[in-house]
Computed example of a mutant assay.
Amino acid sequence: MNSVETGLLILLVLAFVIYRQFKTRPADRSSIFYISAVVIVIGLVSGGLFDPDHFALSLAFLAAEGVAGVGLGILRAMTVRIWADAQGVAWSKGTVWTLLAWLASIAVRVIEQVAGTSMGLTVTTGGILIFVGLTLATQALVVSRRARALPGSAARSYNVER
């Protein structure tokens, strides 16, 4: 997959996920974990994660990108509105803060790309895909845990029965 195709894939996945986060949906769902796993695997197999000329620096940079992805996923998850209906079903919906957190996530990723390039690292789309997969999975995990923690929520028993 060339970088244009990968870039389009990233944009499509992000647009789809962001769009769906602003719809009222059950809070405890696992489909996003499959999407995240596929994105991460594509990022890993696309290669070029490490710059052979700056191996230690690129390894540290990849780790920092991973930490940023997880942290931003947690931040976005905390902005999602979660509630339980009368039957105990947990629901979620993104807020204006969620949109602002997405914009911050994108800005951080762009800054990381610029910083990596300015340090002389070869920037590839594999790192971007791993970042996107990690941040999506983290957000989904935290939203799901918040839903299960709601008083009167049936999400806990629903999740165990799957």
Results as ranks from 00 to 15, higher is better:
M1W: 01
S3T: 09
G7Y: 06
G7R: 01
L9Y: 15
L9Q: 02
I10D: 02
L12E: 00
A15K: 05
F16Q: 03
Q21T: 06
Q21F: 02
Q21L: 11
F22C: 08
F22P: 02
T24W: 11
R25M: 12
P26A: 00
A27S: 05
S30P: 11
S30I: 14
F33E: 08
I35T: 14
I35C: 12
S36Y: 04
S36D: 05
S36C: 08
V39H: 06
I42D: 05
G43A: 04
L44C: 10
L44R: 01
G47Q: 08
G47A: 10
L49C: 00
L49Q: 03
F50M: 02
F55N: 04
L57G: 00
L59R: 15
A60G: 13
E65Q: 14
G66P: 07
G66W: 06
V67H: 10
A68Y: 01
G69E: 05
V70W: 09
G71S: 06
G73A: 07
L75D: 09
R76V: 09
A77G: 15
T79V: 07
V80S: 11
V80L: 02
R81G: 07
D85Y: 10
D85G: 09
D85W: 12
A86Y: 13
Q87K: 15
V89K: 15
W91E: 01
K93N: 12
T95L: 01
L99Y: 11
L100D: 07
A101R: 03
W102Y: 10
W102Q: 04
A104M: 12
S105H: 05
I106M: 08
V108E: 13
R109E: 15
R109T: 07
I111F: 13
I111E: 12
E112I: 00
Q113S: 09
T124Y: 05
T125M: 08
G127Y: 08
I128M: 13
F131D: 13
T135K: 05
L136I: 13
L136K: 00
A137I: 09
T138N: 01
A140T: 12
V143N: 02
V143K: 01
V143Y: 06
